[in-house]
């Protein structure tokens, strides 16, 4: 078990978005967290990564309680996070973005760089170009590549396919499988539930800040309640 979330209540200053959510990610898994707008998917991810402090509940990463610990510490423990937007440094070049991902490392980063370039060859081609002038899909790659520079054991992705053209979206999901095959467990928060569940081992469905359903990707896709939640029935 790489991540365990137990009964987490969290949200903003005077508004709880999550009213007790529990979930887990086993080592090596891809897990999707889906749910309608406002169900608390992104809040869950931010809370796991320490950007929001849970009001109650427990977050355990690799057997260690990390509840309430700051993101810059969590990163060092081997968790990476790619936010939904502003996931790159626009005025820095692609290479500089990746270097910033590895800022806390003092060793040679060329191995990680090679790995990221192997996954996203276009980043090597455009390594000297400012990230701000890349296409949306390429910027997403920069964001994911930055998080990969520390070779995280667990990668949290907030809406990795949002705003991408269909072709780019398919490619992005394939890349996630490739990253997962290299040994990184992945948690994905997605609006695009069908595609995301298709590459996932398991999925969680959230509704108004609570666990609604969990199961294997295919089971969720076949569940009528879930379909209704999405199709607005």
């Amino acid at each position: 078990m790489i991540l365990e979330v137990e009964g987490v209540v969290s949200g903003y200053t005077d508004l709880d978005i999550l009213n007790s959510v529990s979930m887990c990610i086993r080592t090596g898994e891809i897990v999707s967290i889906i749910g309608p707008n406002g169900s608390g998917k992104s809040t869950l991810m931010k809370t796991v990564f320490g950007l929001l402090r849970p009001r109650s509940g427990k977050i355990i990463f690799k057997g260690e309680d990390i509840t309430g610990i700051a993101p810059d510490t969590i990163v060092k423990k081997g968790m990476g996070y790619v936010p939904q937007d502003k996931e790159f440094f626009p005025s820095l070049t692609v290479l500089e973005n990746l270097e910033m991902g590895a800022f806390i490392r003092n060793d040679d980063i060329s191995g990680s760089l090679e790995w990221v370039y192997r996954i996203f060859p276009v980043l090597e081609e455009k390594s000297q170009i400012r990230a701000g002038s890349l296409s949306g899909g390429e910027q997403r790659m920069v964001g994911i590549g930055r998080a990969l520079m520390l070779s995280p054991d667990l990668l949290l992705l907030d809406e990795p396919s949002a705003g991408l053209a269909p072709l780019m979206r398919d490619m992005m999901f394939e890349k996630l499988i490739e990253i997962n095959d290299a040994g990184t467990s992945i948690a994905i928060v997605e609006q695009n539930a069908v595609r995301s569940l298709a590459i996932s081992d398991r999925g969680y469905v959230l509704e108004t800040g609570r666990n609604r359903f969990e199961g294997r990707g295919a089971d969720i896709l076949g569940n009528e309640d879930v379909l209704r939640l999405y199709l607005g029935g």
Partner: peptide, 15 residues
Amino acid sequence: RALSDNVDLARISGI
């Protein structure tokens, strides 16, 4: 430069 671009992302990167 990274911080002047995006402080939150810098923090997320462990800087």
